[in-house]
């Protein structure tokens, strides 16, 4: 059954018939299992991995570390919530180390992100410091290698 997820993780468009052919599980069972996982939230969503840069789309990605004074009772949760509600914030993590929250923010320009940090992030109560790192080049993202991939060097026919 886990094989179904392995296949879907690689290719969200794989049809139940294709999955059945690869796993030997019959089509109805595959369909039923996927539906169940969708209901249970094991499968959260089907996404597409896009190389926007190839399209010539300008996008600025920033990794912003945020230092927060935690508050009794809520810890960092309320601050994290105030941050992740912004749609331009892609991810928010609580991490160990010198900083507390790590946010991934996407904007159209450096200016836009700078404004976001200055006007939205830094002004939140209990946020004591921010450090912004702009993404310069994407080599591998979520398991996907964006740099050129290796070619098939095999001969056409070998014993």
């Amino acid at each position: 059954m886990r094989q179904i997820l392995t296949i879907l993780e690689q290719n969200a468009l794989a049809t139940p018939a294709q999955i059945a052919a690869q796993t030997g599980i019959d089509v109805e069972t595959v369909t039923r299992q996927i539906a169940q996982w969708e209901r249970e939230g094991v499968i959260r969503r089907y996404k597409t991995v896009i190389d926007w840069e190839r399209l010539g789309e300008e996008q600025v990605w920033a990794y912003i570390d945020v230092k927060v004074t935690p508050e009794r009772g809520v810890g960092f949760d309320d601050v994290a919530e105030r941050i992740y509600r912004y749609p331009e914030v892609r991810s928010v993590y609580l991490v160990s180390g010198a900083q507390d929250l790590r946010c991934v923010v996407v904007g159209k320009s450096l200016r836009e992100i700078a404004d976001f940090v200055a006007q939205k992030l830094a002004t939140i109560d209990r946020v004591t410091a921010t450090a912004t790192h702009f993404l310069l080049k994407r080599y591998k993202d979520d398991g996907e290698i964006f740099a050129e991939t290796e070619e098939d060097h095999r001969l056409m026919v070998t014993p």
């Binding site: 290796e150 098939d152 095999r154 001969l155 056409m156 026919v157 070998t158 014993p159």
Partner: peptide, 13 residues
Amino acid sequence: NVISLGVGEPDFV
């Protein structure tokens, strides 16, 4: 445009 099924070795590097 040949699809080769004639290769006697893994397609993994």
